Amino acid sequence: MKTIKNIVLMHGAFADGSGWRGIYNILNNSGYNVTVVHNPLTSLEDGIQAINTALDKLDESAVLVGHSYGGAIITEAGNHPNVAALVYVAAFQPGDGETALQWIQTAPPAPENGILPPDEKGIIYYEKDKYHMGICADLSIEDADFMYASQGAFYAKGFVTPIKNAAWKSKPAYGVIATEDKSIPPEIQEAMYKRSKTIATYVKGSHAVYISQPELVADVIISASRID
């Protein structure tokens, strides 16, 4: 069995790369080479380019990990020749011609969900009063306040751009289903991962499960890194 030592992490909307710190520490201490990619959040294409830039620097294969909207980005970016496996963490996993928006509309939103309509600049924000319960109810209020303050501006364009070639059709895919998710309901995660035959693991946690349950999410990433 071969172990892939490169791990590339991509965060989603309403967050930034600092949320990966716990998982970074676990993987780094286990001997992995971890790259945390800054998601520009300006478009799907810009996100793909950011990942490709990171992957181009690697001389060996990598496991590509995406959270939330980052899942849509890794679905296309995963076609890079250096990507050996994909990991979706409470993430969107569209197919060819599909968008993240299509999938979020397949189930009614939870009452805690605070995603607002795009503003005049095409930017989507999350309602501040709902951020804690909607994104990260299993974190402290202090942590939620920091996440809200440090998030990037998410342009709606990325949410409605269709996937051209879904990498999960040809590469191994693993998934984490966050059972207490109020932003992407668990039933949507289940439907996407079942359709794609993704190897899914249920983890009790909020949409920010990668922050609240870093050990369990890291275990899934480590499993994806072990190739027969």
Results as ranks from 00 to 15, higher is better:
1 M>D: 14
2 K>C: 00
3 T>G: 06
7 I>G: 05
8 V>P: 13
8 V>Y: 08
9 L>W: 04
9 L>T: 09
10 M>A: 13
11 H>D: 13
15 A>C: 04
17 G>Q: 12
18 S>M: 13
25 N>D: 15
25 N>P: 01
31 G>A: 01
31 G>E: 02
31 G>I: 01
32 Y>F: 15
33 N>A: 13
33 N>M: 07
34 V>Y: 05
36 V>D: 13
36 V>E: 12
37 V>T: 10
38 H>F: 12
39 N>L: 02
41 L>R: 04
41 L>Q: 11
42 T>D: 10
45 E>H: 08
46 D>Q: 15
46 D>Y: 03
49 Q>C: 05
50 A>E: 07
52 N>G: 03
52 N>Q: 14
54 A>E: 10
54 A>V: 04
55 L>Y: 09
59 D>R: 12
60 E>H: 14
62 A>K: 08
62 A>F: 07
64 L>K: 07
64 L>C: 08
66 G>L: 12
67 H>K: 14
68 S>W: 10
70 G>Q: 12
76 E>C: 01
76 E>F: 04
79 N>A: 10
82 N>S: 10
84 A>F: 01
86 L>V: 08
87 V>C: 10
89 V>F: 02
93 Q>C: 14
93 Q>W: 10
96 D>L: 00
97 G>L: 00
98 E>R: 03
99 T>C: 10
100 A>G: 13
101 L>N: 11
103 W>K: 05
104 I>F: 07
104 I>D: 04
108 P>K: 15
108 P>A: 14
109 P>R: 12
112 E>D: 05
114 G>V: 04
114 G>H: 12
115 I>D: 11
117 P>H: 03
118 P>A: 13
119 D>Y: 10
121 K>I: 00
126 Y>T: 04
128 K>G: 04
129 D>T: 08
133 M>G: 04
133 M>F: 05
138 D>A: 04
139 L>A: 03
139 L>C: 08
142 E>H: 01
143 D>R: 15
149 A>R: 13
150 S>M: 13
151 Q>D: 12
154 F>P: 01
154 F>Y: 14
154 F>R: 03
154 F>G: 09
156 A>W: 06
156 A>M: 09
157 K>H: 15
161 T>V: 00
161 T>K: 02
163 I>Y: 02
163 I>A: 03
166 A>I: 01
168 W>D: 12
169 K>Q: 07
170 S>C: 10
170 S>H: 14
174 Y>N: 10
176 V>D: 00
179 T>Q: 09
182 K>N: 08
186 P>L: 06
188 I>F: 00
190 E>D: 11
193 Y>I: 02
193 Y>E: 05
194 K>H: 00
195 R>I: 06
195 R>H: 10
196 S>I: 03
196 S>W: 09
200 A>F: 06
204 K>I: 00
204 K>V: 00
207 H>W: 03
209 V>K: 11
211 I>Y: 05
213 Q>L: 00
219 D>W: 02
219 D>Q: 14
222 I>P: 05
222 I>F: 00
225 S>A: 15
226 R>L: 09
227 I>L: 15
227 I>T: 15
228 D>K: 15
228 D>I: 14
